[in-house]
Simulated scan of single mutants.
Amino acid sequence: MSLELLLAFALFAFVTSVTPGPNNMMLLASGVNFGVRRSVPHMLGISIGFMVLVVAVGLGLGQLFERFPPAYTALRYLGAAYLLYLAWKIARSGAPDSGESRGKPFSFLQAAAFQWVNPKAWIMAIGAITTYTPQEQFFTNVVLIAALFALINCPSVGLWTVAGSLLRRWLDRPQVLRAFNLGMAVLLVASLYPILSDF
């Protein structure tokens, strides 16, 4: 892979990782509700889970959707339903240190598994493989692309968690935090629009 292509891919990986989407909205809310330290497994699960998804797409899983479009449609509906469920859970989160039910942060495995039903993650993975992976030494390039994506993705999504933890001190009143969580739930649902608007 040429240096020019590698730099172009790094920019693609950064932009797609740091822009708003389901993962980043959930990490912002996690940073507010649980802090950075308790959200680290969630961040690592996103990056490692996504890396595995990129490798799977590179090894042919993405072609399944080209040959059998109903599978992709089913994935989009499943992902949308799960995101709506997560938005509902975020909206119902209580204040830290209150007696209200507020759940717990995503575990590493939950975050990794979520990548498989996250429509934005599939679009990013397919874009990375089809646009930035040279056919020459394809397997090596797939592994390189996946690993580089994970390295760029983790600190990028981590910015959202840190931003959430910084907001925490301004959201110390239960009513304000409840309004914030409701807003994050609405934004999570809104993040579905560009991905699912052609249903």
Rank of each mutant, 00 (worst) to 15 (best):
P22I: 11
E136Y: 11
A113I: 08
L7H: 15
T140C: 13
Q63W: 06
G79M: 02
G103D: 09
F108C: 01
Y132P: 03
F149C: 05
V36H: 04
V189Q: 00
P155H: 02
G21M: 02
A112D: 14
Y72P: 00
L86K: 14
M43I: 12
F34D: 06
F149S: 09
G60H: 13
F106W: 10
F14V: 00
E136W: 06
D97F: 09
A146R: 01
S101F: 08
K89D: 04
P134S: 13
A91L: 01
V157T: 15
Y132L: 04
M184W: 05
A10Y: 08
L64G: 01
V189F: 12
L86N: 11
Y77L: 11
P134V: 11
A8S: 13
P69A: 07
M184Y: 05
W160E: 09
L109A: 07
M43P: 03
N24G: 05
P105D: 08
I152D: 06
S2Y: 02
W160C: 08
A13Q: 11
E136I: 05
G158L: 04
G94C: 00
F68S: 04
R168K: 12
K104M: 15
F34V: 05
A111I: 07
A113D: 14
V142C: 07
A87H: 01
L144H: 06
T130I: 09
V36S: 01
L78Q: 02
G164I: 00
V142Q: 06
Q137D: 09
L187M: 15
F68M: 11
Y77G: 08
Y85K: 02
A87I: 13
P155R: 06
I90D: 00
A163I: 01
V32D: 00
F68D: 07
S191V: 05
S165P: 07
A121Y: 01
I123W: 15
W170V: 15
L109G: 07
W160A: 05
A111K: 01
N23R: 03
P155K: 09
L28F: 14
L177P: 01
L78T: 06
V52L: 15
S93N: 03
G158F: 01
T130C: 10
C154Y: 14
G164E: 00
Y77S: 05
Q135R: 12
P70I: 07
L187N: 02
